[in-house]
Simulated assay, not measured.
Amino acid sequence: MTSDFTAPQVRSGDTHAPIELRGTRQFALFSAEGREYRILMSVPDREAPASGYPVIYMLDGHAAFATVLDAERAQSRRAEKTGVAPSVIVGIGYPSGLPFSPERSYDYTLPVPAQNLPPSRDGKRWPEHGGADLFLNFIENVLKPKIESILPIDRSRQTLFGHSLGGLFTLHALFTRPEAFRCYIAGSPSLHWAKPLIGQEEEAFIQKLHTEKYELNLLIALGELESDPPHHMVQNARALYDRLEPLREYGLNVNFRLFEGENHGSTLPSIVSPMLRTAAL
């Protein structure tokens, strides 16, 4: 993968040369607050439709960018059979290049009062949190214009894909700015983390759907092994689906997938193909 749109100089026989992903680019972007992000972007190998390319914005970009890219390339070859359209994939990562950077704890979370936060895994205080709206501003006001300055993008076919805290952020984006994307993919959403704020946002979103016209797609997906206490993620996600499913008549096409034998970590690659099909709707 190239950086800042220039190919690295690789010497013949250099066994330490970086591995490149054909048809991809990597560059840095900064938010209005000065937070740095590492953006991974694919460039389809076919001409854009007259309306522009569909685009998928995925969180935790370094965790599954190559997986999503490979699946999109393989399946979009026979779009008429697979239902997967050739798309631009935009992975939003961090300078560390870690699959799950600690910085996500700020970007993907709501400003929940400290007394409402679930216990942390190590018993220590949660890191700084509550930056979801600033991060969403970055996507809308910095990242999207940058991508659209490089490639022709169909603004009516934009997808947001997040897993775990990223799934929580995806729901936050849907509930508070439903016009930002057409498709929302919430993988293993950490609904237990954001109470009671995410519930309040859901209620406001439902009221908005009753008065404003939208055509939205939502996929909620997780593994069947995510039902254990204390978080009960399967139960929380299914209850959310049950509450939102009646909203089909108001323009929300919502689907629920439960992957047999999968846990919180192994669910991420399982979501990729259903996500691509949902993005093509």
Results as ranks from 00 to 15, higher is better:
Arg25Glu: 15
Ala194Thr: 04
Gly93Ala: 07
Gly52Val: 05
Phe169Asp: 08
Gly130Cys: 09
Gly199Asn: 14
Gly97Trp: 00
Leu98Phe: 05
Arg73Asn: 02
Thr278Cys: 12
Met1Val: 02
Glu249Asn: 06
Pro127Glu: 00
His232Ala: 09
Leu218Ser: 13
Arg121Phe: 08
Glu128Trp: 09
Pro127Ser: 02
Ile147Met: 13
Gly251Trp: 00
Glu179Gly: 04
Ile220Asn: 08
Thr159Phe: 09
Pro145Leu: 08
Ile271Leu: 07
Gln235Gly: 10
Met58Trp: 00
Glu201Ile: 07
Ser42Gly: 11
Leu276Ile: 08
Glu202Thr: 08
Gly23His: 10
Lys144Gly: 00
Ile206Tyr: 03
Ser105Arg: 11
Tyr184Val: 06
Ala71Leu: 01
Leu252Ala: 01
Ala66Asn: 05
Leu29Asp: 10
Tyr94Asn: 08
Leu191Ala: 08
Arg11Gln: 10
Thr170Gly: 11
Ile185Ser: 02
Ala239Tyr: 09
His264Leu: 12
Leu191Thr: 00
Leu218Gly: 11
Pro189Met: 01
Ser96Ile: 10
Ser120Asp: 06
Arg121Ser: 06
Thr2Lys: 15
Leu98Val: 10
Arg177Gln: 15
Gly162Glu: 02
Pro178Lys: 03
Val43Trp: 08
Val254Ala: 12
His264Arg: 13
Tyr53Cys: 03
Leu268Tyr: 09
Asn141Met: 07
Val10Pro: 08
Ala180Leu: 14
Asn253Ile: 05
Arg248Trp: 05
Tyr57Cys: 04
Ala173Gln: 03
Ala71Trp: 02
Lys195Met: 03
Arg257Asn: 09
Gly167Ala: 12
Ala74Lys: 09
Tyr57Lys: 08
Leu69Gln: 12
